[in-house]
Design a protein around this nucleic acid. Structure first.
Lengths: 161, 161
DNA sequence: AAGTATGCGTTATGAAATAACATAACTGGA
DNA sequence: TCCAGTTATGTTATTTCATAACGCATACTT
């Protein structure tokens, strides 16, 4: 999927310049409030995710890490991703083995994505998990996190296919 | 997660003997109806999934494949898994990199799981994706498949923890 | 200042999945 | 029944994804 799609529009073009700086600053502020540390590797990985137009693979992040072209070592990036996920700044998309910055406001432990199988775009949306929660409670489960990944075609790709 | 859980009960104990044979026979019948072929490797992997008490990793299947202890080659198992997923006989649980036999009747392209972070059990449940579908349609997406994975504690583990 | 916890750098390894190509087995016509 | 097309398997090797383990550095906390 998502191989050689010619639909070049991106639902979420990456951030640049001021917008990028603002987004990083906002994350830094949030960290300060909770006494978390947005250290250089964490900040760098967050930047890379925010700059990207599409979900990034861990090894893409590793390759892009150094401004000078030097790659990072894998644990550097995986640790940063763990942190960013823990704080709700990023999500892992399981079915893609890829990562995106969080586009939603409140960082509840929930994430829902519409993934285009043609162009590879992944759009986060606000999930309403009420029926699923109800089913889980009925089964006696105590739910902590929920992730949902819907696969199909985005509006642009739907038209042309 | 699911490391050294002492809660030995399994929500879905594996099948044995007649129950196992019946389940495989049922799959064979379904295949005949749609002119699909339940070949020996496919049948063997399905058996292994049905026998298991919990989600199985691909390399567990590879190791357990031969009755004589001989492992399978990875492509053998991955191809069988592709087939079983395509026909709705098995599901991949993305957040575990593991596979389970389908426990639900109708094989729609949907799957929802309650995954216990303590004992590793994964219970399939019937999803009601109405609100998510509505959200997707509203965004212009044409949804093909949906998977949902809820993580938390199963009833048994909830009590003791 | 000492002790503890957290994070980073580094090397190496482990785990999960697929590419590529050759061979074999079904399927459906002529 | 033979041939051609398709589908499935066997096999080797490789790629992709992720973590273990260790030592050092930095930051909180008493």
């Amino acid at each position: 999927m998502g191989l050689d799609c010619h639909h070049t529009e991106s639902a979420h073009p990456g951030l640049e310049g001021l917008a990028l700086a603002d987004a990083v600053a906002a994350a830094a502020t949030k960290c300060e409030r909770t006494r978390e540390r947005l250290t250089p590797p964490r900040r760098r990985v967050l930047e890379l995710l925010l700059e990207a137009d599409a979900p990034m693979k861990a090894y893409d992040l590793i390759a892009a890490y150094g401004q000078d072209g030097e790659p990072a070592k894998p644990p550097t990036v995986y640790r940063a991703l763990d942190f960013l996920e823990r704080l709700g700044f990023a999500h892992r998309i399981e079915s893609l083995n890829a990562y995106v910055p969080c586009r939603m406001e409140g960082t509840s432990h929930r994430a829902a994505f519409l993934i285009c199988e043609c162009c590879g775009a992944a759009q986060e949306f606000e999930p309403d998990f009420a029926p699923q929660f109800a089913a889980a409670e009925a089964a006696g489960y105590a739910v902590r996190t929920v992730t949902l990944e819907a696969r199909g075609l985005c509006p642009a790709c739907k038209v042309e296919s």
